[in-house]
Design a binder for these strands. Structure first.
Lengths: 228, 228
DNA sequence: CAGTGGTCTAGACCACAAG
DNA sequence: TTGTGGTCTAGACCACTGG
């Protein structure tokens, strides 16, 4: 006999328990929402909320009519936090500072994959943690999309932070990779030429028009962590 | 006058529109759920569902009693997919294969940070994409926690895939970083010594006992992508 | 066609935390 | 203390899709 369950968290925990204890093995079908609700003594919506969460994590596969089954090959989804650099540094208990190294307006190199007709602001920024190089960032901003950037004061807020506060909600894509530090990277990050640096490339859109593209190179030793 | 809105997706879209159009700027308080529900002509639960989703993405900050505001410094949360390697390779349109290079049972080196009293299976595996080295993986499995691993047939399924199918639901933590390829990495990944490799370190737990720890080094050129 | 998940509603009570 | 989000319920209809 199952104990009565009420909250969706409890339902989730019970489902996870059954998966863990192999009452339901990977690939197995589990009862439909209505039946589970009756068995666990709660409303169907509650079961729905619980199972939906597990499906979002990739633990369950749900399809209308086909029902719900335990994922056979769980494509686990982990959530990584993408904070602005200042917060990232401060979370490490260090003091953040940033320096704008270069700032000029001009056309964009074809290598950036952007419309070559617009004007762009080119920004090179170094972020410091307790005075040591932390992140070297090279960015182009499309002034046709974000004209207010042209006169932005970047002393108090870094380019990214400034954009975040003034450009409203945006979509974007992001890619993580490892690269050997270029001469330029090495010089700014104070690391050996060729050292492995964690690189984040990010494009931010306003609708379907790219606002900004950036390549961020973290000083050696950087780690991005999360749980799953 | 606002058009009537019904679904939670529509509510979300409307809220995003208002943020984007700076009707609500970063840092601003937005109306409470009840008022929004009336204004948009839907049930409060619907508004709740919509706003909760945006809060999960880091776009809104919500606190009981304090209300909901547009995040000032959005710690955006991106979801990265952690598939099993076979799927990852196949998604690239390539053929996956894997070779177990080393497999032995013995104590664990202190460097792994695991209990040194248990017996461990040590596994070294190379994953191939269209025959080319793709991922070099070094893993230890605690046989006290996952004894069935001792007799596992790893010809058809790689160690990770086998564990996923037989160890039930597990928690874990994961870290991404960049490292210069060691001599060992370089030999197996067929890349220059010192090349930048994308490294994933992962610990998987059964409750609070570590089942397995693994270091995965991807061949140069690997990228992990997502959207935000 | 019919079963399953997806969602909406109206009303209710609870938990938390700001003032 | 009291306003705000968090959640539950019962019932209903819809949307998708497998058979």
């Amino acid at each position: 006999m199952t104990e009565p369950v009420v909250t969706w968290q409890a339902v989730q925990a019970e489902v996870l328990r059954r998966i863990h204890d192999r009452v339901w093995a990977p690939g197995d079908m589990i009862p439909n929402e209505a039946d589970l609700a009756i068995e666990l003594g709660c409303a169907r919506v509650t079961v729905n909320r619980a199972l939906r969460g597990l499906a979002d994590l990739g633990i369950l596969d749900r399809r209308r009519k086909a029902g719900t089954r335990v994922a056979l090959t769980p494509v686990r989804r982990a959530t990584v936090e993408i904070p602005i650099t200042r917060q990232e540094v401060e979370r490490l208990g260090k003091t953040h500072a940033h320096r704008v190294i270069e700032r000029w307006i001009g056309p964009v190199d074809a290598a950036w994959g952007l419309s070559e007709h617009d004007r762009y602001m080119h920004l090179t920024t170094l972020h410091l943690a307790d005075g040591a190089p932390f992140l070297y960032e090279r960015r182009v901003v499309n002034l046709a999309v974000a004209p207010m950037m042209e006169t932005a004061d970047l002393a108090a807020f870094s380019p990214n932070e400034w954009l975040v506060r003034h450009a409203g909600f945006t979509r974007g894509d992001i890619a993580f990779s490892a690269e050997n530090a270029s001469v330029e990277d090495a010089a700014h990050l104070a690391c050996p030429n060729g050292a492995a640096v964690f690189v984040v490339r990010r494009t931010t859109f306003d609708g379907d028009r790219p606002i900004t593209k950036v390549r961020m190179a973290y000083a050696p030793g950087f780690e991005m962590r999360t749980v799953l």
